[in-house]
Amino acid sequence: MHNRGAVAGAVVLLLVVIMAILAPVFFPASPWDMVGAPLQPPGSPDLLLGSDMLGRNIASGIAYGARVSLVIGLVSALVAVVIGVTVGALAGYFGGMVDDALMRITEFFQTIPGFVLLIVLVALFSPSVVSIVVAIGLVSWTPIARIVRGEFMSLRTREFVQAAILMGESNLRIILRQILPNALSPVIVSGSLLVGTSILLESALSFLGLGDPNMMSWGYMIGAARTVIRLAWWMSVFPGLAIVLTVLALNLVGDGLNEALSPRMSRKVQA
């Protein structure tokens, strides 16, 4: 069942990526161009998914929006993974004082309501793709750090690591070459889930009016559509569906990866 789900997720994801890449082929005009009459319902001539209040093509917005949303999701997740892996690896590998200090920082971020911190950060740097991505990364790295720390703590005691230490390999080398590759699978799984969460967070920011108006993302489209929701349902429903489908696909793939990569199940069953 899960593998089937993962395959379905992968297919959907692939389609979304293809749509993002081929957007200029399907829609030569910019998604910001006013190509038709405003507020046309779906199915109107040349406006498969209708138009928004400036007469812009929703379908074109969805296609180009895929680029922005995927990039925001991926890069935010990457930021979170980089921070999380760094903190987790250092804490788990060195232990003691380093661990204590880094865990206080982690607790700090876990204790503050993440979404409130996100709003403060975006307000501080004023909304742009860069500030949004960095802010999302900054508020979502803690679970990764905890996972990586756990993996590092247990892997550090293993023979091959102890052997490397005895052979006098540098700490950095051991962390990067010996332990990290073995700790990566849960990171990949959580990372794939984070992509979806980041897309959702960006849409929530846009909902509160903190999106980047130079980038047409799905979240931005919903944010723009929410006030007209009763006048033009298609403006929020289609980008909403795009988000739901993509995040769903990402989660399915994440589940699939989890099953494929995590040896835990089999290990426990054998034990």
Partner: peptide
């Protein structure tokens, strides 16, 4: 107001004035 900024960006673009929209709270 956001729509107006987007509209100005498009219409200025048509006459060769390139607009970057800036936002804040």
């Amino acid at each position: 107001w956001t729509r107006q900024a987007e509209l100005v960006k498009q219409q200025f673009g048509k006459v060769g004035i390139e607009v970057t929209i800036e936002t804040t709270d």
